[in-house]
Simulated assay, not measured.
Amino acid sequence: MSSTDYAFALDGAQRAAAAAAEILLHYWRQGVAVEWKSDATPVTVADREAELAIRDILRAALPEAGIYGEEFGRDGDTQEWLWLVDPLDGTKSFVRRTPFFSTQIALMHRGELVLGVSNAPVYGETMWASRGGGAWFEGHQVQVAATAELAQASVSLGNIKSLTADARWNALGGLVAEVNRIRGYGDFCHYHLLARGGLDLVIESDVNILDVAALAVIVREAGGVFTDLEGSGLTLDTRSVLAGVPAVHEVALARLR
């Protein structure tokens, strides 16, 4: 894909995220009934309507691409291009009137994540990136921090419930004892902070690829490293995250291994 093609696809993803934002803000203001999926996670009409709006725009922007969405599954058998969509990442926050939710849209080419848009409408942040094009926050290019040592690092922990039953739990405790600052921003927020220099490491053990695909592109294009907890690259089956500035990510990965 040329830089022109990336720009066209990115424009489509941004327009799709903006359309979703209008729907989410509508239901945010008026309130919405909550249903529960078989996996005990919540879903609302806002999730579904936002994904349908996103799908319409993405199909027009890149007709040859398949779409894999949180609410309506995967359409299209193409192995070349695949959109990854979470229309409302952070539904639990949404239904509890907490503004830490977002729309996540990423594009995968032959298994590699190449483009991402992350839009948090109530929080008031949009970030985007495409391969080789840098990471951007409200029109300004961003970079991760230059933190070089674990003792200087600010770390945010997200969903880590399964890590409590993992052999790496004690290793995580060792990291916590050595870093400068511990926070738990969660959802899109700590990845946005990481990409623009406000954090140095994010750890999560319980995620879905749709939650983090766009954020992975953004962090990487900002100069960060984004892997799972084993240090592997992201796939459709990814369930954990270790993301950070290069020096801190390297040390944390060695400790957690």
Rank of each mutant, 00 (worst) to 15 (best):
Q14F: 09
A16I: 12
A18Y: 04
A19I: 03
A20Y: 06
A20W: 10
A21M: 08
E22W: 03
L24S: 09
V32Q: 10
V32G: 07
A33D: 15
A33V: 09
D39L: 05
A40S: 14
P42V: 08
T44D: 05
D47R: 08
E49Y: 03
E51Y: 07
L52G: 12
R55Q: 11
R59G: 04
A65M: 08
D75L: 11
D89E: 12
G90I: 13
S93N: 15
F94I: 12
V95N: 03
F100M: 11
F100Y: 13
F101Q: 09
F101V: 07
S102Y: 08
T103N: 11
T103D: 12
R110T: 11
E112I: 04
E112R: 10
L115P: 02
G116V: 06
V117Y: 05
P121T: 09
V122T: 12
Y123H: 08
Y123Q: 10
G124P: 06
G132Y: 06
G133F: 02
Q143P: 02
Q143D: 11
A145S: 15
T147K: 07
T147M: 02
A148I: 01
E149C: 06
L150A: 08
S154M: 13
V155W: 07
N159F: 08
L163Y: 00
A165L: 09
D166Q: 03
D166F: 00
L172R: 07
L172A: 02
D187C: 13
H190Y: 02
L194V: 09
L194I: 13
L194S: 06
A195G: 04
G197V: 01
G198Y: 04
L199I: 07
E204P: 02
L210D: 00
V212T: 12
R220G: 01
A222Q: 00
L234N: 00
L234T: 01
T235G: 00
L236D: 10
V241W: 00
A243T: 03
P246V: 08
L253H: 12
